[in-house]
Write a protein that binds this DNA or RNA. Structure first.
Lengths: 199, 199
DNA sequence: GCTAAACTGGCACGAACGTACCACTTTGCG
DNA sequence: CGCAAAGTGGTACGTTCGTGCCAGTTTAGC
């Protein structure tokens, strides 16, 4: 819905959201962090101007001053959340291995994961968010490829990613017994490793 | 949040949602159908009392008369949507086979799938919806098991379901090229068929 | 130091929401 | 038939939302 997203080009009159030139940049960052926090707590329904401003100890108007709209605020929060998630997942996998992923899911804050997936699905209705969702998927695929020392375009990597993400979502939403997920995860990884190279 | 959900027990005073005894049952069904329709069109944010009543050509109060709350309306709409989806998917698969699933996804109404998944993720925050979500998953697993002539508890079936659902969600949200999904789907099915029986 | 621009913050508007209320009509049953 | 229960529909209340507005304050550049 937003045809422009060029922050360096300051020619925007109706939506003058040029990056701050003072300590106001801290305020913007604070607002964004608050939005992320609320997003991980109560889903994107909880990310309102008022809630964000209140959590950041800032007046209500600050949110409309630094962000053109609620959609933009949500998009940036989603992007930041995805970025954080990617680095967290990467370090976890390099430290503990792929098959320990279920434990990370079980360990991590469940509402956080829910917020992430909520926004992921919502991305299906918003082209801007869709781009971020694709970036999330690509990031995960890259992590798996690096871990297995395979190419990102390898079909096995692609398939393994798909399976893992589904296991993840399923675990978060349905809260089935953890053993089941662990078994399936191990099976998926082994299957991917033993599969033939792509044709 | 709702400690009661016993429709046969009519002792409910504050929420007297006893099933209608007259042609009002049609009205209730109409409202529910409208809720489902709105759900598939604009996500569950579009399912408001007013929108449902208007779409059903009924007064606003009818929604609160037949449904205790918006949450209940949403839950019933979700349940009905899942049921419809399950039968549709089953007939499609028996007619065209598992590997043609991507084409069904591509063919079917995209916003409908989005609404389904939106509600699925939302089920992570609501125990009532979570039950319906589990039922959806179990239904899909059963379809796959029947198709492959395997047991529902077979690990291969379980894993294949997981992969298929992820492919489905991914396709709906990210709208990647269809060929990719087709390839992955075929690979997943073949892998599941050739895999060893569960230990 | 002075002026314009950037920033701040309190407030209000209009819209949409869930839900309660209540007079009215229809219906099932003794 | 008569009457209580079920159903009906218009309306209103209280809340919350996104966002616009604008007088005041701070800051940057000349």
């Amino acid at each position: 819905m937003n045809p422009d997203q060029n922050p360096t080009q300051a020619g925007e009159r109706p939506q003058p959201h040029p990056p701050t030139q003072a300590r106001g940049r801290r305020r913007r960052a604070t607002l964004l962090a608050s939005a992320v926090h609320l997003l991980t707590q109560g889903g994107f329904a909880a990310v309102t101007h008022r809630a964000v401003a209140h959590h950041a100890n800032l007046p209500l108007a600050a949110t409309t001053y630094y962000f053109a709209s609620r959609d933009q605020l949500l998009a940036e929060a989603f992007a930041q959340l995805v970025e954080t998630e990617l680095t967290t997942t990467r370090t976890w996998i390099t430290d503990h291995g792929l098959t320990a992923l279920t434990d990370q899911i079980a360990t991590a804050d469940r509402t956080r994961q829910l917020g992430l997936w909520e926004l992921y699905v919502h991305a299906g209705r918003d082209p801007v968010l869709q781009q971020i969702a694709r970036r999330w998927a690509d990031g995960c695929i890259r992590i798996i490829a690096d871990t297995l020392h395979l190419s990102e375009t390898d079909t096995r990597v692609r398939l393994l990613y798909t399976t893992l993400s589904a296991l993840w979502l399923e675990q978060v939403v349905e809260q089935r017994p953890l053993d089941e997920a662990r078994t399936l995860l191990a099976l998926a990884v082994k299957t991917a490793e033993n599969a033939l190279p792509p044709p």
